[in-house]
Design a protein around this nucleic acid. Structure first.
Lengths: 223, 223
DNA sequence: CCAAAAGCAAGTATAAATACCTGTATAAAA
DNA sequence: TTTTATACAGGTATTTATACTTGCTTTTGG
């Protein structure tokens, strides 16, 4: 009997994870042996595990746990570091060239959008297992167009904001003016503006528009 | 033989849709008889179809097609209008109380987060089919806390923005000041501010923070 | 224990955004 | 044609945000 390709799934949405599991179970030469809903525990639990998956399907947008985000990007880096023999296939909702190039650069072996056909997922898994890479047309184009350019981390270097700053940032995103924020937090408008200034500095933004974009990108506020 | 509950799936991400299909196929009393990747065609194709699903699973965040958005919210309204006998179960990535209350109000028969257990999905389907509603604890709390409050449309009443306004909005989100936008578009700062004022009015925002949130929510600008 | 660093609060001056208003050109409706 | 509506451009006055600076307090590291 031919050896089955062992799969690991890292995806926060339980339904989606179960769905992929169900789909993959339709192929006899695949076997899902590991699942996780977040990125934190993956490295640790794999190190304790006796069976290391051949291929890991990793969701790009894993949710942060409390304050500390642990993205699919970070997991890819850590997997490449701790388990270089494991092939990493990124699953992403979006088809953004910068993301693709970035992820390939840091160690992913393939990139699939969540809009893919299940057959393509199967092909990607077998190809990445046999050949060590699965680069489809979209991915290739993205790589080609971004070779030479310095790629950008998706989560920008997590400029650590203080709790007070996070509080102010949240209220800014909810369209409160500095004065209203002051009232809510029982501090002077001037102080609020001080925090705003620090936020602009730390996030590298020019104005509130930048702050909101930053907050949403880093999932610091609800959509 | 007992009649199977017929299911319709409306979900843009192909993998996710196939995954749910695969999961639901595990229950013998369920049968998926309709699938769609967008909201547009649903009403029309159902009207032509001989078999109308008993239960429709609808993704809340269906993508816009070109300029015209057709959200799960709109589809819920239209389904309640054209097929009142069909039970609508909303699938959402987020657990936002305002969304939940709003959807129940406009005709949804249940609300599930994508983080749900497959068993819960099955229970929701059978319950909504037999009892006409599936309200779990989370949903009930959301309803209770929002009774009396006027609920807010998720896609706010699709304020159709002019091309010029969209242009300005995009630049606002990119952190350009009114003056810079004026230079880019070869118009006066005053004019730019005029467009901004209209944007604030149309989107129901108080300031740029609101504009950025609106733009991102409606996918008018890149993340 | 003391010095350095950093969070928090607050003030002044300037730049920018927001509210409110007017006019013109264009296109659809009466 | 005349009316009506609206996208677009521009203006003035006011409010709000941003830049820069200062002092107080807590925390950190030598």
């Amino acid at each position: 009997m031919k050896k089955k390709i062992t799969i690991g799934l890292v995806e926060d949405q339980l339904l989606f994870r179960n769905g992929i599991h169900a789909i993959l179970s339709g192929w006899e030469d695949l076997e899902v042996i590991y699942e996780s809903g977040d990125g934190y525990s993956v490295i640790e639990s794999l190190q304790k595990s006796a069976r290391i998956p051949d291929v890991m399907l990793v969701d790009l947008s894993l949710p942060p746990n409390g304050d500390k985000p642990y993205s699919g990007e970070q997991l890819t880096i850590d997997l490449a570091d701790c388990f270089p023999e494991v092939k990493v296939l990124i699953l992403s909702a979006h088809q953004d060239e910068k993301f693709i190039a970035r992820l390939i650069e840091i160690g992913a072996h393939g990139y699939l959008v969540k809009d893919s056909d299940p057959v393509e997922v199967y092909q990607a898994i077998t190809t990445v297992y046999e050949k060590g890479a699965y680069i489809n047309h979209m991915t290739l184009m993205a790589i080609q167009r971004n070779i030479g350019k310095r790629t950008q981390s998706i989560l920008q270097p997590t400029s650590d904001l203080t709790s007070r700053e996070l509080e102010v940032l949240g209220l800014v995103c909810q369209q409160y003016t500095a004065e209203e924020i002051g009232e809510k937090l029982f501090i002077s408008v001037k102080t609020v503006n001080g925090h705003r200034a620090n936020l602009l500095l730390k996030t590298g933004s020019r104005n509130v528009a930048g702050l909101v974009m930053y907050a949403l990108r880093n999932e610091l506020v609800k959509f």
